[in-house]
Design a protein around this nucleic acid. Structure first.
Length: 273
DNA sequence: ACTATGCCCTGGGTGC
DNA sequence: TGCACCCAGGGCATAG
């Protein structure tokens, strides 16, 4: 599940390998046609051919490759996608869905078991990420911003954290981790979070994302970095997928429930409603 | 405007 | 060993 720390790790890996490179050929494999959202697959392949990459950016969980014709190639990895730089001769991954040949003889491989990933080619990257607000690591995402988004909401605080319009880049892993760090029960109605706890939650979101980024992300299953390697943060999580194990802060047994349709992990003793 | 639910997709795990 | 079933979930569409 690539979330902000994982996508940023990929961005940092790929930036020096892609900037200045030209696409020789892009191929979306048979069966993966839905990868192409903004154009038909063949049209997207043609539009990418010959373009040079000028910048590799990220907003939330989206990767943005700015091209020399002014357009932006926006990718989303969803749950099981990966974008890996590899030698031309490297054998394809079992779930390779697309391949991009570059002008230095190397390649990019888009692997995605569940075929949920998306590619857009757009004039303005915002077109490809319509319901996306400030990046969770940007200066726009402040304690006050979070407090305003929580105010008056009946939905669970975790549902608010997962809303990409509130904090782009937070996903299921780091929403659970942030709630644990802040000592807040993820089921708490957003409107019950006052300014003090909103500030604590904001700091917790920043902390968990930054720690995971230092660890190059979490590889619970399919996540791979831009070079095909695994992250290291999954061994250091406090609650995510740790149901039945002791809380590292109070020793109580971590529980699992469902919030906002997602598996949700929390400590019943030190996370308060 | 807000909230909840189902859909997409497929491998891995479980129970019989 | 085989098979049916359930689970994982980001973003979107739709319903209430």
């Amino acid at each position: 599940m690539p979330e902000l720390p994982e996508v940023e790790t990929i961005r940092r890996d790929l930036e020096p390998l892609l900037v200045g490179r030209r696409v020789v050929r892009a191929r979306i494999h048979a069966g993966a046609e839905r990868l192409a959202v903004s154009d038909a697959p063949r049209a997207l392949e043609r539009a990418l051919a010959g373009r040079r990459v000028e910048a590799v950016g990220r907003h939330g969980k989206y990767l943005t490759l700015r091209l020399d014709d002014g357009r932006t190639w926006v990718m989303h990895l969803r749950m099981t996608g990966s974008l890996v730089h590899a030698a031309a001769a490297a054998p394809p991954h079992r779930f390779e869905r697309a391949r991009v040949d570059l002008d230095d003889g190397t390649t990019l491989r888009f692997n995605d078991m569940r075929k949920f990933g998306t590619w857009h080619l757009v004039d303005d990257p915002a077109e490809a990420m319509p319901r996306t607000g400030p990046d969770a690591l940007s200066a726009v995402f402040t304690p006050g911003w979070l407090r305003e988004r929580l105010r008056g909401r009946a939905a669970a605080v975790k549902a608010v954290l997962l809303d990409q319009a509130v904090a782009a880049g937070v996903g299921n892993i780091y929403a659970d981790e942030a709630c644990w760090i802040a000592g807040i029960d993820p089921r708490t109605p957003g409107g019950r979070i006052g300014p003090v706890r909103a500030a604590r939650l904001h700091a917790a979101v920043r902390q968990t994302l930054e720690e995971a980024l230092r660890d190059r992300g979490s590889s619970f299953s399919d996540y791979r970095d831009g070079l095909g390697g695994e992250g290291m943060h999954h061994v250091r999580v406090h609650v995510f997928r740790r149901e039945g194990q002791p809380c590292g802060r109070c020793g109580a047994v971590i529980r699992k429930t469902r919030v906002a349709g997602r598996g949700t992990h929390y400590c019943p003793r030190c996370q308060r409603l």
